[in-house]
Nucleic acid binder design. Structure first.
Lengths: 256, 256
DNA sequence: CTGTACCTTTCCATTCGTTGGAAAACTTGA
DNA sequence: TCAAGTTTTCCAACGAATGGAAAGGTACAG
């Protein structure tokens, strides 16, 4: 891959899309000046860029003048992998929860984080805060490590360069994590023992798409005293079932 | 509202976002040249714009080089109205289906179309093709007419200027439709008798948000021989329930 | 393994849109 | 009535977008 002479950020479009970072779960409706403050952009510039995003219908302006994510963005999101993945996976995830009693997570990699696209709480549950849409570190969680292990080299390099400690058990040594990831790739299985949350372990496996590509990761969360090894077989079975279900769903798009 | 000296389309960002139009339900993964052809954009320009959209993570490039809607777009879409609306409305829609046996639709306005965000088939069902994500005309469907009746003036004007005939019963006279819309606004109820599909009638009501704003519309579809009037009460009850549910859900975002 | 067709990537002189400080216009609340 | 905050407009300097063209890949047929 050739070196790019222009870095991201040189483009007008990229800078305009940066304003979307101002929006999150607790900031769904923002005023012009809030967006400007939250992104550190001059007011006049923010004003023009928001107008462009409204013109492109990614954002919409309410009658009171405030800005929110537009319905078109939702519609585009419906075309993305997480939507079909979630739909195809749901019945199999429910199966998995029934069989193990533990909480199940599904995530995809988005940039340098794992994006949780669905979560079903098990009966032997403890509260978890990772609702669909939340982001998890790639290096300290089960699904994160699976996604990182199968990510392109440049992503791995970037991720390994910024290992932050989440708990006292988090692996922050790049060399050690790289060895862990090699193992994850070989075993097609990752585990995290209290590396992201004390008292919680997780086991995760990849969901393969066509070829050797990894579309997503499925993980089980269990409190520290559960033998993770006992969860491996149901987890792998679920992953295969989801692979097939997604494939069947996507088949339907192209026939007829 | 002041006249804008610069039309949408003069901005670089707007033009780049135009490439997203190349993606739809049956075109979820596209190559550079497909996007160029589908949007009529020169290749070199398309190449640069796609790179900008990938940098902004609205799109992602797969290992085989093809482009698809990115996980970040899905995530942004999760912050949009349709997502919370759908979640809050689901139990009440199920109620409505049980009570009436007919198929129920929920839609929001997106530009000059009604965007279907959810659909539940009734027991006395006939096949319908309007899956979540599909778009319906504003002037020939029940939910479309509700959304149009409560839309801002400039939207109404634009919509009335392009009335196309869908069936022989579609109203294509702007003056007549304007009167129909006045009535819809007064009665808070719209009906479409075979105006969008022969043999099918629909009844729709608005879902009110805070103040007098209309967030969405809920509609029931029934084959021609069903008395639509009998559906009005359950439909209105459902709309109120959904209003309250959405309000309760959104309340939770801001507390704590 | 040569040619043909198609796709992706890069180059660069010209053109055109962006930038953001500043001022004006508007909104709120005291 | 004034003060503080917000949104909108203006415009000269600056910088990025544009797209034809050519180069670099890839796939397949003969």
């Amino acid at each position: 891959m050739a070196v790019r002479r222009t870095a991201p950020g040189d483009s007008v479009t990229f800078r305009a899309l940066g304003l979307l970072n101002a929006f999150d779960e607790t900031h769904r409706v923002l005023s012009l000046s809030q967006v400007a403050r939250r992104t550190g952009t001059p007011l006049a510039t923010t004003h023009r860029r928001l107008r462009d995003l409204v013109d492109g219908r990614l954002l919409q302006q309410r009658t009171d003048g405030l800005y929110e994510i537009g319905a078109r963005t939702w519609h585009l999101g419906q075309l993305a992998r997480p939507t079909s993945m979630r739909e195809a996976a749901l019945p199999h995830l429910q199966d998995l929860v029934l069989r193990t009693g533990q909480t199940v997570h599904v995530g995809v990699r988005d940039g340098l984080t794992a994006l949780v696209i669905d979560r079903l709480a098990g009966s032997r549950t403890f509260t978890t805060r990772h609702l669909p849409g939340s982001r998890l570190p790639l290096h300290s969680t089960g699904i994160g490590k699976v996604l990182l292990a199968f990510a392109p080299d440049d992503v791995q390099r970037q991720a390994l360069a910024r290992l932050t400690s989440v708990t006292e058990f988090t692996v922050t040594d790049p060399a050690r994590l790289r060895r862990d990831l090699d193992q994850v790739r070989r075993r097609r299985l990752a585990e995290s023992l209290q590396q992201n949350r004390l008292g919680v372990g997780s086991l995760a496996v990849p969901v393969f798409g066509q070829g050797e590509t990894v579309m997503a990761a499925i993980g089980l969360l269990a409190s520290g005293d559960v033998r993770l090894a006992s969860l491996e077989d149901p987890l792998r079975a679920c992953s295969h079932a989801v692979s097939r279900a997604v494939e069947a769903l996507e088949q339907r798009w192209y026939e007829q």
